[in-house]
Amino acid sequence: MGIHRLLLIMLLLAALALAGCAQRTVIVDRQTDDADTTLELDYRDFEHAAMKAVESMLTSGQLDHPEGRRYVMAVSRITNDTMQRFDTDQLVRKIRVELLQSGKVVTTSAVSSEGVQDELIDEVRRLRGSDEFREDTKVDKGTLISPDYGLSGKIMQRNIKRDSNTQQVEYYFQLVLTDLRDGLAVWENETPIIKRGSNSSVPW
């Protein structure tokens, strides 16, 4: 009985000690997050690259339509050429949101490098022959809008060993806006993000 009680107390103490050491989970405030960066890409890098790209696009004048209307942009292929696995939408979505809010650009979901981005666009058009839907609610032919611009790009990574202790990881966010009527690249931007850290860290 005495041994059992002692064991119980030790277990309780161990549990308390472990609970005391446990790392707290917190919600990060993006505005004031001053946590050290890592060699990998984190949300701040994507926000940084997106913001720089949008600023550059808006000040370039290429998005100012002479008739005051919004340009239609399609998202082409954005290649992740890094050693990390992430969805490039993490970058593209931020750019799309900000461009939409600017009132200068609207992105089409009807065309992308991988076909129709929103399959419902095709689906609702297949309903034209169906008797189950009211005729006046069906989508007419010739209603989709062809894009003016295509956004494409690449995110690259280079690892450089500086000395026995330090490595440098270079990321390049490269984006191109192409006028789809003549194929000319009307805007290009590269945002480098260079990180330096311990060789013991693995940037992927």
Partner: peptide, 8 residues
């Protein structure tokens, strides 16, 4: 409100 308002 905008994502453009962030620390740089």
């Amino acid at each position: 409100q905008t994502g453009m308002s962030r620390q740089m």
